[in-house]
Amino acid sequence: MSYFRITLMRSGIGLPKRTQGVLKALGLRQRMKTVFYPVTPEVAGQIMKVKELVAVREVDRALTKHELKAERKPDPGFYMERAARR
């Protein structure tokens, strides 16, 4: 099962209601919001409606909210050492 990973890069403000409606239907409510949908002709048609606003990748599985959050988290630059058990 493959998915479209769709990220809203440009806002839909000021564009026709039809375009804004497609963004709403896709669940893209603010910039940089990422959503996952299975690869179907219906979703492909929706992406084509908003192709100027989104970035799309094809991925194998849909990530959860927590995985997406972990992806955005920067590298802390350190790690905690644990005392070895004696």
Binding site: S2, F4, V39, A44, M48, K51, V54, V56
Partner: peptide, 14 residues
Amino acid sequence: VVAVVDQALAKKSI
């Protein structure tokens, strides 16, 4: 974007 969508659909021959 169009190329990615096209390739994804082509894999499923849609």
